[in-house]
Simulated assay, not measured.
Amino acid sequence: MATITTTRTPRGAPAVPVTPGWARWVNDHRKWLFAAPAMVFVAALLVFPLAWTGYLSLTDAEGSVRAESEFVGLRNYLDVLSDTDRFWPAVGRTATFTVAALLFEVVLGMAIALLLWRPFKGQRWVRVAILLPLVATPVAVGMMWRLIFDPNIGLANQVLGWFGVGPQPWLAGQHSALPTTIFIDVWQWTPMVVLILLAGLTSLSEEPQEAARIDGAGTWQRFRHVTLPLLMPTLTVAVLLRGIDALKTFDLLYSTKGRGGGSFHEVETLNVYAYGLSFDYNEYGVSSTVLILFFLIIIGAMWALTARRKEARR
Rank of each mutant, 00 (worst) to 15 (best):
N76E: 07
Y77S: 05
L78K: 13
L78C: 00
L78M: 12
L78S: 14
L78N: 08
D79S: 13
V80R: 00
V80G: 00
L81M: 15
S82Q: 13
D83M: 04
D83R: 09
D83E: 08
D83S: 02
D83K: 07
D85R: 14
R86F: 15
R86P: 07
W88I: 07
P89F: 01
A90D: 11
A90T: 09
V91T: 12
V91R: 11
V91W: 07
G92A: 11
G92N: 01
G92M: 01
R93N: 13
A95E: 05
T96L: 14
T96M: 11
T96E: 14
T96R: 11
F97C: 02
F97W: 13
T98G: 03
T98M: 09
V99D: 00
A100Y: 01
A101W: 03
A101P: 08
A101C: 12
L102P: 04
L102W: 07
L102C: 03
L103T: 15
L103K: 03
L103G: 15
F104C: 13
E105S: 11
V106Q: 13
V106T: 13
V107D: 04
A111R: 09
I112G: 07
I112S: 04
I112R: 05
A113Y: 03
A113C: 05
A113L: 04
A113E: 06
L114R: 01
L114T: 02
L114F: 01
L114D: 02
L114Q: 03
L115F: 10
L115D: 05
L115Y: 04
L115S: 00
L116M: 12
L116V: 03
W117G: 00
W117V: 09
W117Y: 14
P119G: 00
P119L: 04
P119D: 08
F120G: 02
F120N: 01
F120Q: 00
K121H: 13
Q123D: 04
W125K: 06
R127E: 14
R127H: 00
R127Q: 14
V128H: 04
V128Y: 12
I130H: 07
L131F: 14
L131D: 14
L131K: 06
L132M: 15
L132V: 15
P133T: 00
L134Y: 06
T137Q: 13
